[in-house]
Design a protein around this nucleic acid. Structure first.
Lengths: 185, 185
DNA sequence: GGAGCATACCTCGATACCGAGGTATATCGG
DNA sequence: CCGATATACCTCGGTATCGAGGTATGCTCC
């Protein structure tokens, strides 16, 4: 999760830890802030796995900074992670949004479309939160207003995302084949 | 998280571990399955904290079962957790849905409304996922279709939830006060 | 010149969770 | 009566994360 986000941000541009922290705070911090004690060990792990390099530079404003650069192995790891996300990356909204945030870094539109189709399949499965034995209980049957809310909100989210997925898949698959320079709708 | 869900389910009725497992799978398993190795240690923790009791009963079909019952302390812990959820319970959708699933167990509608109002405040804060310096970048400005999707979906979800929150708050606060026999909207 | 703040990085103990394994018992089909 | 399956519970090692703490530098304001 964090690993994916770090690799994704560094793919765009080298950053030092503090900047990375702010990028992460913008992306996921609203919902789930990440702490220093999570970020720096994660950077260490990535470094010792050979996915990134740090170059110590004299601090422009304060303490010396370690500017982080992706290695080739790092780019390969990011690519692999985006190509074949884990099931949890598909089903958990927080993780899925992180995948989406960096999906453009997969070069091939066909690969991007394949990832979107996995999410489409997941959202198309019939699923409820509450069951009466094996039978899913619909929002209309619940007299608990809070549980009804869960179902209503989930339904609205799913509808919005399905619409977006279908239109994005259509434009990924159709337009920019070979001769078209610009595929924007 | 898990703790909250276990306490919430046991508040409704005593269950043994295996049944609890199935209830949890229905509630959160679609998005994020919980494993045996998470559930049973969690039960142990709750037991050693005095929040639940297990009574061993001869297995009706198979191995002997430990039927789990909430203690008074367990009910109190659930009540406290629902009354004053942590910030993460408010901001993280997965956790928030778990709170919602058991919120009816808070006896006082005013307390339920106070929790909903915290979520309302959270959703009302202006927030984006991507920033150009301090300025939030809107969906329309992004040429990355995937990041645009994140913003569109988040926006749709927020709108749906805000609508539900407002109508639920209205019906929690207005109708069934004291002298009115009929409070239906 | 020193207080306060933002920048920048790090450590360490505690906890929650995962996943892969293991041990039983009861039921049902062949 | 043997194997497969469902029920029911448990352990243990490894990992990610949190949270609270610490260190140091440079800028700004009074």
């Amino acid at each position: 999760m964090l690993k994916l986000a770090i690799l994704g941000f560094l793919h765009d541009q080298p950053l030092h830890g503090y900047e990375l922290r702010r990028h992460l705070a913008a992306l996921t911090g609203h919902v789930r802030p990440i702490s220093d004690g999570t970020l720096y060990p994660a950077i260490r792990r990535l470094e010792s796995d050979g996915l990134l390099l740090r170059r110590t530079e004299p601090g422009s404003t304060a303490a010396p900074r370690h500017t982080l650069h992706l290695t080739d192995a790092g780019r390969a790891a990011l690519d692999a992670r985006l190509r074949t996300p884990e099931d949890l990356d598909i089903s958990d909204e927080n993780r899925w949004f992180t995948v989406l945030a960096f999906l453009r870094q997969l070069a091939d539109p066909a690969l991007q479309a394949a990832v979107l189709r996995r999410r489409l399949a997941f959202l198309s499965e019939p699923a409820s939160f509450f069951y009466d034995g094996p039978r899913p209980v619909g929002a209309e049957e619940l007299d608990d207003p809070f549980r009804r809310g869960i179902l209503l909100i989930a339904r609205a989210t799913t509808q919005a995302e399905l619409a977006w997925l279908r239109s994005t898949l259509a434009s990924l698959e159709a337009p920019t084949a070979a001769g078209r320079p610009d595929g924007s709708s």
